[in-house]
């Protein structure tokens, strides 16, 4: 959902696996929905890791562990690989995450997160490992993501890094504007291009 980003300070949900693909984030059978009901997708986020085929929760999966919670998902490298399904970003947003921290994101999924007002924050592998360690030591530790200053801080250790976000997208996130709003204002330029 369109929302204004500023400073987010939250506990984290850790998922220290690499190559988490979008088929795991939201399995294909949930792609048959014809509406953008984020709550529905959120309820089925990581469905097959979260629930057994009979619908009972898998106790040791992190989303079922009441110790962990918050608006920040922390994942291993190459998060969101595979399918272009935006449903994966809808599921992450629908579950209530505003930020995903990883050392590496797949391209299409990263765009999909940004287009759904979920902020992908790329950190160094060292920062990521320290963050996993901090969460393991204290699940209640918090991370601060400062969008205006483009910094991410592990509040348990004080370690801070800056992250990339282009000026255009930053403006969009801080003002709750999307790309379509922008493109619809460009009709003259599009027609001029077509004439050339």
């Amino acid at each position: 959902m369109k929302q204004k980003f500023d400073i987010i300070e939250s506990t984290c949900v850790p998922l220290p696996l690499e190559n988490v693909d979008t088929d795991q984030i939201i399995p294909a059978r949930f792609l048959k929905a014809t509406t953008r009901d984020e709550r529905f997708f959120g309820e089925n986020l990581f469905r097959d890791w979260r629930y057994r085929p009979d619908g009972t929760p898998v106790k040791d999966f992190v989303l079922n562990n009441p110790v962990y919670g918050g608006e920040i998902l922390v994942a291993g490298r190459n998060f969101g690989s595979g399918s272009s399904r935006e449903h994966a970003a809808w599921a992450i947003a629908g579950y209530g995450f505003k930020v995903v921290i990883s050392s590496f994101f797949a391209d299409i999924h990263k765009n999909n997160e940004l287009n759904n007002f979920v902020l992908p924050v790329v950190v160094t592998p060292e920062f990521l490992q320290e963050l996993f360690d901090s969460i393991a030591a204290d699940p209640k530790m918090k991370v601060r993501v400062d969008v205006p200053n483009q910094t991410v801080t592990n509040l348990a250790t004080g370690r801070s890094e800056s992250f990339e976000l282009n000026a255009y997208k930053k403006y969009c996130l801080m003002n709750a504007l999307d790309d379509i709003d922008y493109l619809l204002l460009q009709k003259d330029k599009i027609e001029a291009y077509e004439q050339q």
Partner: peptide, 11 residues
């Protein structure tokens, strides 16, 4: 993604 499909449909 689908938001981008919407961009192209529109513009």
């Amino acid at each position: 993604g689908t938001s981008e499909v919407e961009m192209v449909l529109a513009s």
